[in-house]
Design a protein around this nucleic acid. Sequence first.
DNA 1: CTGTTAGCGCCTTCAC
DNA 2: GTGAAGGCGCTAACAG
Lengths: 341, 341
Amino acid sequence: MEEKIDIYFISKKAKVSPATVSRVFNRSELVSEKTRKKIQEVCEKYDYKPSIVASSMRTNKTKYIGFVIPNMTNPFFFELLRGAEEYASKKDYYLVVFNSENNYEKELVFLDAIFKRRIDGIIISGIAGGKKDNFFTREILKKKLPCVLVDRYVEGLDIPSVITNNVKGGILAADYLLKINNKRIGIITFELKIKIIKDRYNGFKRILEQNGLLENFLIEIPVDSKNILEELARNRDKILKSKVDAIFCLSDFIAIYLMEFLRNSDIKIPEDLSVIGFDNITYSQFVSPKLTTIAQDIYKMGNLSCEMLLNNISENNNKNIKLKNKILEPKLIIRESCAVR
Amino acid sequence: MEEKIDIYFISKKAKVSPATVSRVFNRSELVSEKTRKKIQEVCEKYDYKPSIVASSMRTNKTKYIGFVIPNMTNPFFFELLRGAEEYASKKDYYLVVFNSENNYEKELVFLDAIFKRRIDGIIISGIAGGKKDNFFTREILKKKLPCVLVDRYVEGLDIPSVITNNVKGGILAADYLLKINNKRIGIITFELKIKIIKDRYNGFKRILEQNGLLENFLIEIPVDSKNILEELARNRDKILKSKVDAIFCLSDFIAIYLMEFLRNSDIKIPEDLSVIGFDNITYSQFVSPKLTTIAQDIYKMGNLSCEMLLNNISENNNKNIKLKNKILEPKLIIRESCAVR
DNA sequence: CTGTTAGCGCCTTCAC
DNA sequence: GTGAAGGCGCTAACAG
């Protein structure tokens, strides 16, 4: 029978108490250099790795952060995840992935898994929410699980979030289109119940309004992110007959599908029709024509969300500092998909 | 002082023993329906969620799987992750993300984190490996941590893997180019030390050889996945002067950068130059011209890798069935980036 | 600076 | 079908 290598084993070999061994890993400043070195040598020799599982029992900290994704098909979320992971792993926290694919049932399962696992906090980059509005976030709040929203926010709920100024993003898009004299406007929308999406829409529309061009707002096509191409095809006539100059897409993901659709329909971008997107995902620069878009700093949003969450987790102990939201600035990226008229 | 809600609390309220409560969650077939219902009601009432952390201590199972990614910039890995997550979460396992960005130091840190966290197994979609070749995998083997490689394999080591037949993929690419009479050939390579990449290369080259066209293998440009565009630019003259008909890229990720580079250099695809890729990532269909490529079923690879890992984890107990590798078939996807000459 | 001790919340025997 | 009890590996509190 092999002897198990735990903290007692190490403490015996090093001729110290288990508490001292523990201190070496947690509060090593309390241990004299001499004994610390000795203990480290013994640990090395037996390849001892203290169990975080066991320490979680005592400390009530698992060093895990949940990362909830609504749709792993959109690389936008991968970039968000990348930003968060990079910050977390630096601090010895690691991310657990929960991909709901916008499925409410799955979210309920995740909620259960998250609580059972005693995860220290979660970052939410999108939830379906289901019939009961915001059930997910309400549960999180009820249980006082530290939480940060990225690229999402919920009004009236006390959950910090990291977002881009989406209203301003919409404004930038509209301003630009008008400036280059694209005045017959269409828009492809999706999930307008999501506030950040609605904000883009509102910002955009506001500019048309201010310029008395609301009657030039000719088509508005809602799309479901699962069957974008089909829904565009269903609206083919509407799009072709509208004779719009430009179409604003509420995300690059959708813009790229729209470009594909237009190409298949022999409509030339930007000669026949300008397209402008939102997000600036990596691939927007690779489609052709290169997509003009409103950029968010996606990586930074992910990174910041994790930073905020970890700050909250540690501040929870001396509940003093109030969480703040972070709002990043959007930026117009002019590439090739919009024409001056 | 709030009473803590643990298994004892529930057992008292339900007037049963803690053992019975535990059984309801784990081996509920051993509990009579009547007591089970009663216990469930009490759990519901107090919103009790048994701690997986505590159960991990007893069972030595954390229900976590590590997912090691070499590069979160390539959406290929997101698709792999998606496939694995989907399988895992169905079985109440969850994935912990370790993104090394091909950094050997980070991998060492991860190795430590993985062992300390007593994660049940890991899926590796790529590692740097560092100076000591395969240090990472050797450590994993030494500690007998269940492990599966996806889109990677290591010869001579007893680690199961899920891959596509990459040699065959290379063959398909070469066959196709020759068939459409593209006979002056170039290739953009990267990380040839990775076996699956080298296999693609070898399969491709073998066909040229068999057709006595090896002297038509005109340029071979190695590229570092971090600065693809710059490295292509550095080789601009070489590419332009070679007058090749077609370039084979060992991944779509690279092919897309190459297309971008060629576009910037006013070389028309496919009229002046055919491009063929490998992987069939989502965006290959959105670039224009649409990329002709050798497809791997990425999602399925991720899914399968997780299935294999979980099978191994449970079979470990009654160490009987030997792990097998899975080799999926590649498929030529003809789109628009290769011209008949 | 170091040691002793008592749990953290659960599950697995082993009884009954 | 159910209960009693010990222990998984660690750390916090207290004592020295």
